[in-house]
Write a protein that binds this DNA or RNA. Structure first.
Lengths: 239, 239
DNA sequence: CGAAAGTTTGAATGTGCTCAACAGCTGTGG
DNA sequence: CCACAGCTGTTGAGCACATTCAAACTTTCG
């Protein structure tokens, strides 16, 4: 059930059997969410962290105009709000974009684990720093990349993150977001996303259709989007 | 010397005398940097964290075109690269924008402190999550706000962060960045920053001149920029 | 004092937005 | 089974915010 999460952790660090047992023990209950259902509201006290098992979630902030900016997408195996352990109240909302199932880990369990296993504390600290690295890369997209590069980069990022947990290969991945939601990620309008997807299709780089991102030319896409996966820290580290 | 750092920590958490002593003990040496001097290069192994004592630093990533996107600014009291403790290699550069002085804390000291004081581990984990919250707010600016709001929001953020360590009040703060550097933060060109600063001046909200941001109407500025300081977690927390 | 860096302004251009209409698909109810 | 509503996706025309290019001006600093 939390296999994808362990897979994600073990892609970067060694996790002992004892540590694994502690993580498994920490999961209290599971829940399901429908598309567009709010999972964690901003500004409210939180009491646990949400481990995404299936589906796509998003962190977002909204503006007075009614628009919203999605600041990160979450894929299975991710904690959507591990930072709620230290922040207690979030500065953003967390919502399910597609149908999702999650496991909940109470903050006390996180505290117990991190105090008993300082190594796991660093592993999870690392995971929140990885979120920050993803935020930084999105800042680059939002600030300096063209619409074509933004979408290309987003698909490259998702391909890499999903491949890490076995949910994508070089030919693509399932991806049920609407063009409006993609627009909310990349600071564009849905109309412009539509035109840009058309261009990506015409250039024979990616095709997005029927809830699937079909990558025709991964290398070409990465080149066009100036994608360098280093910020995702995909390689195994010291231990 | 690290008073501003302690002040920043204590604004949110209680730090015991013992913890303070451990932090003071961890600082190994101090260094100075000139404007535009690279402090931490991306992709290279790091061995310590950089505590900013004076001056303004920036995290940035650069693009093939030669442009760069600044992803966060650092003010005195901040660790510019606390996340290097868990990431080891950074996905971005850290540079001095103005003349800076720093204190260096070796990673072994960070490790020792966080293992000896789990509470401090959470305090520093919190600090890196604060960086992520700032990244998120910049994503909102870069993705959805107008040029006027972006600059206004940036000045509000800096005012709040600098005020926390006593380096700003409601009338403004010293701020030696060029218009090009401001542009690199907010995804604009220096020409457009110039025109936008003119508009902010004409609206009698802020005036930027001679290395100082003079705020004429802080409330008006915050309203215009849709600034809500909640994401900076300025209030004291549980302990 | 002179060179270099930074700021200011104008004119033309362009990427992406707004507004609008329409097509396609799914689900619902008569 | 069809009519219709609602959501998503597609396309066109005109517009706007921000960019590019260029020149002049001001400040900083060696």
């Amino acid at each position: 059930m939390i296999e994808l999460h362990l897979r994600k952790l073990r892609a970067r660090d060694d996790i002992s059997a004892e540590e694994e047992a502690a993580i498994r023990d920490a999961v209290s209950c599971t829940r399901s969410y429908r598309p567009d259902e709010l999972v964690v509201p901003a500004r409210q006290q939180t009491s646990g962290c949400t481990l995404l098992l299936a589906g796509i979630m998003a962190r977002y902030k909204d503006l007075r105009s009614g628009e919203r900016q999605i600041t990160e997408l979450h894929v299975p195996g991710d904690f959507a709000d591990l930072h709620s352990f230290t922040l207690k109240k979030l500065d953003h909302h967390v919502t399910a974009l597609t149908a999702c199932t999650v496991a909940v880990v109470p903050h006390e369990k996180v505290q117990a684990i991190t105090e008993r296993f300082p190594h796991l504390a660093r592993v999870y600290w690392f995971q929140t720093n990885l979120d920050a690295a993803i935020h930084r890369e999105w800042e680059v997209s939002l600030g300096r990349r063209t619409a074509l590069q933004r979408l290309g980069h987003l698909f490259c990022e998702l391909q890499a993150r999903l491949a890490l947990v076995g949910l994508a290969d070089a030919t693509g991945f399932d991806f049920g977001l609407t063009q409006s939601e993609i627009a909310e990620c990349m600071g564009l309008t849905s109309v412009h996303v539509n035109r840009t997807l058309k261009e990506l299709r015409e250039r024979e780089l990616v095709e997005v259709r029927n809830g699937r991102v079909s990558i025709q030319d991964l290398q070409g896409l990465q080149r066009a989007a100036e994608f360098d996966p280093a910020y995702l820290y995909l390689e195994k580290r010291g231990g």
